[in-house]
Computed example of a mutant assay.
Amino acid sequence: MNSRLRPLSLLCASVAVFSVAAFAPPAQAEPAGAPADRSAAEVRSLPRTVDPRPSNEELAEELAEIADRSRGRVEVRSIGDSNQGRPVWAARIGDGPVRIQYISQQHGNEPLGAPAALEYVRTLGLGNSFWHRWLRSRVTVDVIVRANPDGHVHDWRYNYDPDADPEYGQAGQGYDINRYHDPAVAPDDNPATEAGHIQRAYAEFRPDIVVDYHMQGRYIDDEGREITASLLWPTHPDVADSDVEAAQQVSVVAERAITRLVPGSNVSLYPGGDYQGIARNAYGLRGSASVLIELSDMGAEHEQAQIRSAYAAMLAVTQSAADGSLRRIDPDRAEQIPPRGEPLPDTERAHPLRLDSLD
């Protein structure tokens, strides 16, 4: 494995590490005439039923239609192909100073972030009110809509690589993409193909904020209420304090949005580890406010609410980064988000491949 590694110092020399202590230049933090937040109205206007599992072909068609209708406001591109030749689609919107990257469905059997990401691209790219135009002038957003198209087809956690004999993954199936973002591993040396694509997209874009969407099993809090989503910031000890605090601010915004805009929501902290190959830690080490959001897999009757939760958090983080309110949040408030608690009885066997202590 050591032959695949390049020193972190050499890799970072080619991609500048940047601070996120301030998410926008001070002179632009609170522009005159900034419109009121209409995230709540956008969440309410989301269709009652969103396809929770669009095929790769349907996803590509929807993105192409959005790009065509946007009149240049949405740039859709492939950041690379999967091992089975499927494009990994990304959409870029806006031209503002604050850069946000959303990543969805690194694990193929954790689907609900992708339809939320698609609806977010549609809203931010096609909306043409003063609010939409203002957001696009304040932020630039890059959305990796479905990071693991092969895993989606096979309905498993991993990418597709029948030759894989991985440290993290399944021999004969593939690699666990979300263990292969280590900053010490160059993209060209990355054995997990799609993780290498994400590394390149990150290096080219250099986001201030990264939010990575996953799904977890079913859990309850200390009062017996079911957890609907969990989140966490970087926990690797070498992440700069300023970047941890910035990620905690993002976490507070996301938790508030889900709780406020989606009835019945109950958000907890996620008990994640400090391994540096996990995106949450890796991109914190690279200088971004990096946050994990895990939607609970609560069954078909809750899927629309979970899609709304992911969508609401995307809009709220965008709004708060655009208007400067994100920088005024006390990061210590993130520590007040309660712990996740125990698995819901009789559900552990339903999620045999959810490695929930490791993202």
Score class of each variant (00 low, 15 high):
Arg206Tyr: 03
Pro7Lys: 04
Arg218His: 14
Val43Thr: 09
Tyr213Glu: 14
Ala321Arg: 14
His154Arg: 11
Arg308Phe: 12
Ala192Lys: 05
Ser242Tyr: 14
Glu62Ala: 15
Met215Cys: 10
Tyr213Ile: 14
Tyr158Phe: 14
Asp208Asn: 10
His197Gln: 09
Ile293His: 13
Gly273Arg: 11
Thr49Ser: 09
Glu42Pro: 00
Ala312Gln: 13
Arg218Pro: 00
Leu344Met: 14
Ala350Cys: 05
Glu194Pro: 04
Ile144Cys: 07
Arg44Glu: 13
Tyr202Asp: 01
Arg225Pro: 00
Pro162Met: 09
Ser9Phe: 11
Asn148Met: 11
Ile93Lys: 04
Ala16Phe: 02
Asp238Ser: 14
Asp332Phe: 00
Ala90His: 09
Arg92Ser: 13
Gln101Arg: 14
Arg340Thr: 08
Pro345Glu: 06
Tyr160Asp: 09
Gln105Thr: 13
Phe18Arg: 12
Ala29Cys: 09
Leu46Asp: 02
Gln304His: 03
Arg133Thr: 12
Asp68Pro: 00
Glu342Ser: 13
Arg71Tyr: 09
Arg73Phe: 00
Glu223Phe: 00
Gly299Ile: 08
Pro31His: 02
Leu5Ile: 15
Leu10Glu: 10
Ala313Ser: 13
Ser309Phe: 00
Leu355Asn: 15
Pro97Val: 04
Glu294Thr: 15
Arg77Ile: 11
Gly169Tyr: 03
Arg200His: 07
Ala67Phe: 08
Ile227His: 00
Ala195His: 04
Ser265Tyr: 14
Ile93Asp: 06
Ala60Ser: 07
Tyr202Gly: 01
Gly196Thr: 08
Tyr158Thr: 11
Ile198Ala: 07
Val88Lys: 05
Ile227Ser: 00
Gln276Arg: 13
Glu245Gly: 01
Val262Asp: 02
Val145Met: 03
Leu11Gln: 06
Arg286His: 05
Gly277Val: 06
Ser325Leu: 07
Tyr213Met: 12
Asp81Trp: 05
Arg122Pro: 05
His351Lys: 04
Pro162Lys: 10
Pro47Gly: 04
Glu294Lys: 07
Ser78His: 12
Gly224Asp: 07
Gln28Leu: 15
Gln276Ile: 08
Glu348Asp: 15
Ala334Asp: 03
Glu255Val: 09
Arg256Lys: 05
Ser288Lys: 07
Ala350Lys: 15
Ala22Arg: 10
Leu326Gly: 03
Leu135Ala: 06
Pro263Tyr: 10
Arg328Asp: 09
Leu8Pro: 00
Ala164Arg: 07
Val250His: 12
Leu261Ser: 04
Asn281Ser: 15
Pro149Ile: 11
Ala60His: 10
His181Ala: 06
Gly94Trp: 12
Ile198Leu: 13
Pro54Cys: 04
Gly94Glu: 08
Ala91Leu: 06
His181Asn: 14
Val253Ile: 15
Pro331Glu: 07
Asp189Trp: 03
Asp51Ile: 03
Pro166Phe: 06
Ala322Ile: 10
Ile220Val: 11
Glu119Tyr: 05
Gly284Pro: 14
Asn2Ala: 12
Ala246Ile: 03
Leu326Met: 15
Pro352Asn: 07
Thr318Trp: 02
Asp81Asn: 14
Asn159Glu: 13
Ser230Asn: 01
Ala313Tyr: 00
Ala195Asn: 02
Gly169Phe: 04
Ala246Glu: 08
His214Asp: 13
Leu285His: 12
